[in-house]
Design a protein around this nucleic acid. Structure first.
Lengths: 121, 121
DNA sequence: GTAGTGTTATAGTCAAAAGCAAACAGTTGG
DNA sequence: CCAACTGTTTGCTTTTGACTATAACACTAC
């Protein structure tokens, strides 16, 4: 279970922590029943604050992806499919921005297609 | 040249101002050579600060969409096509987030397609 | 010349993110 | 049992970004 963080990123650290877990779950590197490393451990390893890690964990709990109980490390309860559903929310944000910029549906999809192609290079 | 703003939105006011101009340009309601209303005028009309409007205008200047010179109101110099190119950047952000969540290209495109469909309802 | 424009500078408010520190209340394993 | 570890909670400070406020400046246009 690898959790990484980029302090130069504009994305909040807590979100990055949560994203690391989501990616591991969606990518098959983690499965329901697995345990996350303790928040204190992650905080010390990454050089960030305990609260920041816990806020990331609590995001995951609010989404039903992990179970948190004091005294024990977090347990993964969500599935990969569950994580992929979050894609729709991200896609909706993009679609909204695209339409707001005056794009048609086709233009928006073409842009998404082209972006994916660029990232694959 | 209509500039609107939603103070309840999470999007920064300056970004909303810039987006209003981009949408008008991409949608054909504004064209190169047109002038933007003065920043002081927009600020007073929308009930926001002069600086906030100017930050939006400066975004557009940095993107080559408008020309700013003191003493005169801003002039549109960019084209609708130029605005649509910005779609690619937005799409790339979405694509990156999708892939980071463990999605395949097809899943990402499906998500975008579904989001567009939802917004059309 | 006057009124209006964008520009610049300085300072203040406000909220969110993150950090720090300490105590609390469970679980686990020797 | 008990010591070590876990997440939880509380309260505070620091930092950063967005926004506001005021003022002076320099340029353009009528």
């Amino acid at each position: 279970m690898l959790i990484t963080v980029d302090s130069s990123s504009a994305q909040p650290l807590a979100d990055q922590v949560a994203n690391s877990v989501r990616a591991a779950l969606a990518g098959g590197q983690a499965a329901p029943g697995d345990r996350l490393p303790s928040a204190r451990n992650v905080a010390a390893t990454l050089g960030i604050n305990l609260h920041t890690v816990l806020r990331g964990y609590q995001q995951l709990r609010d989404e039903g992806l992990v179970e948190l109980r004091r005294g024990r490390t977090a347990v993964i309860t969500g599935t990969a499919d569950q994580v992929r559903l979050q894609l729709t929310a991200a896609a909706e944000e993009f679609a909204r921005a695209a339409l707001h910029a005056g794009a048609t549906d086709e233009e928006a999809l073409d842009a998404a297609r082209q972006a994916l192609a660029n990232l694959r290079e």
